[in-house]
């Protein structure tokens, strides 16, 4: 049986004045997969997330479960089942860890507030013992777990992670990779991940999209994609691509 396409982006284009940040980009994410997006700094990866989550208006189409989401505000897109995290951890400094995860369930969960599920998600991201602590007291890994936990509390169908490994050491990267796999396998949530660490992407993803200056270079199996001369050239320059 063919896998169902959960999210389909067609001819996405975003211009900031004369700068074309995303240029005619098309891709599709199948239900249950982990889909990777990579590219050099400034390639437009985070802009793609901002387009998919309603932060910026754009040209083109985005369909989620067959429904057009272009023009919807971010909170409505969240209610549809699209959650995201940010490259720089965003936390609510005025709240405790437990309250922060609660926000996802209280405001983003389409079925209404679910206290039991909130506790479950706190446990899922291993923060139950810290639920009464102010969020600011968490370390970087804790803040990343918290962002993911709050996003999961919205009961998303798709979770978009923006460079979750940034600033992490090898041990933390392994822990985060395990968490991402668990989210995908145990909760059945489709994941899109933007990442710079190719090892992470080749290990986690089923499909990898490489973009540069907002344009697709190639898309497909991560092992094949990383061996593509165009990708090597884009990351390491002409000399490496020729070798």
């Amino acid at each position: 049986m063919a896998e169902r396409v959960l999210l389909r982006a067609s001819n996405l284009t975003k211009r900031f004045g004369a700068l074309v940040a995303v240029n005619n980009l098309s891709f599709q994410v199948k239900e249950g997969e982990i889909f990777g997006i990579a590219g050099p700094n400034g390639a437009g990866k985070s802009t793609v997330y901002n387009l998919l989550t309603g932060v910026y208006p754009f040209e083109g189409r985005v369909e989620f479960e067959g429904r057009e989401i272009a023009g919807l505000p971010p909170h409505k897109i969240a209610h549809m089942g699209i959650a995201r995290t940010f490259q720089v951890p965003q936390i609510f400094a005025s709240l405790t860890v437990g309250e922060c995860v609660d926000v996802g369930s209280r405001f983003g969960c389409p079925g209404g507030y679910d206290r039991a599920y909130t506790s479950e998600m706190l446990d899922f991201v291993s923060l139950t013992d810290q639920k009464d602590r102010p969020t600011e007291q968490l370390n970087l890994l804790g803040k990343k777990r918290l962002m993911i936990g709050a996003s999961l509390a919205t009961k998303p169908k798709i979770l978009m992670l923006d460079e979750p490994m940034a600033g992490s050491n090898f041990k933390e990267i392994q822990q985060l990779m395990d968490l991402i796999k668990k989210i995908n396998q145990d909760l059945g949530i489709t994941i899109i991940i933007i990442e710079h660490f190719m090892k992470v992407l080749t290990e986690l993803t089923k499909t990898l999209l490489i973009i540069e200056t907002g344009t697709e270079i190639c898309c497909g199996d991560p092992v094949e994609v990383t061996a593509n001369p165009k990708v090597i050239q884009c990351y390491l320059g002409d000399a490496y691509a020729e070798n």
Partner: peptide, 21 residues
Amino acid sequence: TAFLTLKDSEDFARALGVSAL
């Protein structure tokens, strides 16, 4: 709670379903 989340991080609050408007 909504007021505090919008104060602390409007982008994340909106991504979690808080209507800023």
